[in-house]
Amino acid sequence: MFLNKLKAIIEGHFTVFKHSFKKRITQEYPEVKQDLPENFRGVPDWYAEKCIACKICEKVCPANAVRIEKGVDNVKFGLNLSKCIICGNCAYNCPKNAIIMSKNYETAVASKSLLIIEKNSKDNNYE
């Protein structure tokens, strides 16, 4: 019984020591990025030229994070990142594929006002 315990302890030390000769698996994050899986969901992206302002995305959103406003000749899109849970419902239910889940996940910002993304179809720089 006692000898078994001692054997296990010594074996454990050898196992740990062996790991120091193995290859390091750490990725140098900012320089080397991991390959994302095909169906990875990042921040939702909105494409104004496809949007028909049907407001389905507003209805299916479980967290009320998406907001679509239809003006006279333009469509406004609002996304509150502090509510969005990246479930992908808006992209799945969109009839024209105007919302697509992007691969962007680096969302850290220094101010809370930057968490609300607002886009207007009239602006040219919505991309």
Binding site: P30, C84, T107, V109, L115
Partner: peptide
């Protein structure tokens, strides 16, 4: 502030 639900480990490093 780091939104997303939940953020990736890389996002925390970022």
């Amino acid at each position: 502030y780091l939104p997303m639900c939940p953020p990736k480990p890389e996002a925390l490093l970022d």
